[in-house]
C-alpha cells in the first residue's frame, strides 16, 4: 500500500496531499501539540517532557516517517511514545518503581490494558504476565478499546 493507492481508495489522509518530504518544523507545526500531549501522558514532568519533545522532532528517525507507508500522525505517535517510554524507563531505573504497586489493582478493562501498554510502556507479553492473562487477551483488549472509542 502506497500513497497513490491511498488516493485511489479516496481516503483523505495527510501523506496523500504531501508532495515533498516534510521538514521537521513542518511536522512539528502539525503534530507538535499532539506529541507533547502524548509525552506528558507518559512522562508527567513538563521539563523532561519538553526535552523529549525536542528529541522527537530533532531526531533523524523523524525523516523515516516520510517513507512510512501509513499516516504521518501515526508515525509521530509511535516515535513520541517510543522516546517517552525510553526516558521513563531510564527514570524508573534511577528512581522508585511504583509500577508494581499499581499492578496490584487487577483491573482487566480495555482502558487499563491500553494504559499499561501505551502509557506505562509494557509490551503485550509483559502486560499479560502482570495481569495473569494471555497475550491474545491483551491484544483483544486493545481492539476493544478503540472499538468502544469509535462507538462512543
Amino acid at each position: 500500500m502506497n500513497e497513490l493507492e491511498r488516493m485511489n481508495n479516496g481516503v483523505d489522509l495527510h501523506p496523500v496531499t504531501k508532495v515533498a518530504p516534510l521538514t521537521p518544523l513542518e511536522v512539528y507545526d502539525k503534530f507538535g501539540a499532539m506529541a507533547y500531549g502524548i509525552i506528558l501522558q507518559i512522562v508527567p514532568q513538563p521539563h523532561l517532557a519538553q526535552e523529549i519533545l525536542v528529541n522527537v522532532f530533532a531526531s533523524p528517525q523523524l525523516q523515516a516517517c516520510n517513507s512510512y507507508p501509513f499516516t504521518f500522525a501515526v508515525c509521530v505517535i509511535k516515535l513520541a511514545r517510543a522516546k517517552a517510554v525510553e526516558a521513563k524507563k531510564k527514570l524508573m531505573a534511577i528512581g522508585t518503581d511504583d509500577v508494581e504497586n499499581t499492578l496490584e489493582n487487577l483491573d482487566l478493562s480495555p482502558q487499563r490494558i491500553f494504559d499499561l501498554s501505551f502509557r506505562q510502556g509494557f509490551t503485550p507479553d509483559e502486560v499479560a504476565q502482570k495481569l495473569k492473562i494471555s497475550k491474545s487477551e491483551v491484544l483483544k483488549a486493545l481492539h476493544d478499546f478503540f472499538k468502544s472509542y469509535r462507538n462512543s
Binding site: K78, V138, L139
Partner: peptide, 14 residues
C-alpha cells in the same frame, strides 16, 4: 485477524 487486536498493536508500535 482484525478482531485479534494485532493491527492496533502494530500501529502503536507494540
Amino acid at each position: 485477524f482484525i478482531e485479534s487486536g494485532i493491527l492496533e498493536a502494530y500501529l502503536l508500535g507494540f
